[in-house]
Design a protein around this nucleic acid. Sequence first.
DNA 1: CGTTACGTTTACGTGCGCGTCAACTTTGCT
DNA 2: AGCAAAGTTGACGCGCACGTAAACGTAACG
Lengths: 133, 133
Amino acid sequence: MTTDLLNIRDMCDAFDVTPRTLRFYEAKELLFPIREGQKRLFTKRDRARLKLILRGKRFGFSLEEIRQLLDLYHMNDGQEAQLSKTYVLAEQHLAAMEAKKAELEEAINELKEQMVWGADKLAQLAKEKTVAA
Amino acid sequence: MTTDLLNIRDMCDAFDVTPRTLRFYEAKELLFPIREGQKRLFTKRDRARLKLILRGKRFGFSLEEIRQLLDLYHMNDGQEAQLSKTYVLAEQHLAAMEAKKAELEEAINELKEQMVWGADKLAQLAKEKTVAA
DNA sequence: CGTTACGTTTACGTGCGCGTCAACTTTGCT
DNA sequence: AGCAAAGTTGACGCGCACGTAAACGTAACG
C-alpha cells in the first residue's frame, strides 16, 4: 500500500480536480481529510466520497444536495432513529434515480428516432445525386 | 386548436418557468418566438425545444451545450454537408447518453447494495430490542 | 544557509442561470 | 378618455462552484 493516505497533489491527479476544489469541498463539509500538521491527508473514505461527489455532479446535483446524499452511502450506524431516517431518504433517492433512468431512456429513444429521420434524409440526398449522374 | 401559438404567460404555465427564463433563453438563442408587435408568441417548435432544454438541464448540461445539441433534434434539412455533420454529432451525443445511462445503472446498483447493508443493520437493531424485551 | 517545491489561509474575481426592480408601451375594458 | 393588466427592454443583484493572486509556513536539497 502507498500509505493509504494521499496528499492533495496525488488526490488531484487521481480524480482530475484542482486543489482549490478539494479545499472547497472540505469547507462545504463534503470531505474530511485528516491533518498532518497543516497538510491535508485524504483517506480511503474521502476517495469514496469524492467519487460519489463527482458522479453526483455529472447528474446535475448541487453540492448541497450531494452533501445530504453522501450519508446514504455510509449509513453511519448511529441510532436506529437516525439510521431508519437515512434509509427512507435512500429509498426516495433511489426512486428519483430510477425515474431519471426512465427519462434518460426516453430521451435516447427520441434521439434515435430523429436519427432515423436524418438517415433517411441523407439516403434521399444520396439517391438524388446518383440519379443526376 | 388554441391558435397553436402561446403568449408568454401560457408558455410559463405550461412548463412551470418564469417569463425571465423564457426571455433569457431567447437571448441565448435557445428559443425563437415570433413577434406580434412587441409581444412574443411561442410556436410548437419552441415548445419542443423548451421540453428538450428542461430535460437537458435535469441531466446537468449547460445551456450552451444544450444550444448546440438542440439542432440534433431538428435536422434543419439544409445542405448534405451540414446534415451529415449534424448526424455525426448526434451519434456522439447518443453514445454519451448511453454511457450516462450505464453509469446511472451502476450508481443505482451501488445504492441498492448500501441499502441492503442498512436494512440488515436495522433488522439487527430490531432483534436486539426484541431480545431485551 | 538560501532557494525550490509543495502546501496553507485569506480574499477578491468570474461565469452561469436566472431574480428583481424600474421605467415604459400596448391592449382591453369601462 | 382613463386606468388596470400584461408585456417589453435595460440594468443591477445574487448564489453557486470554483479560479486566481497574495502572503505565508515548512521540509528537503545542494
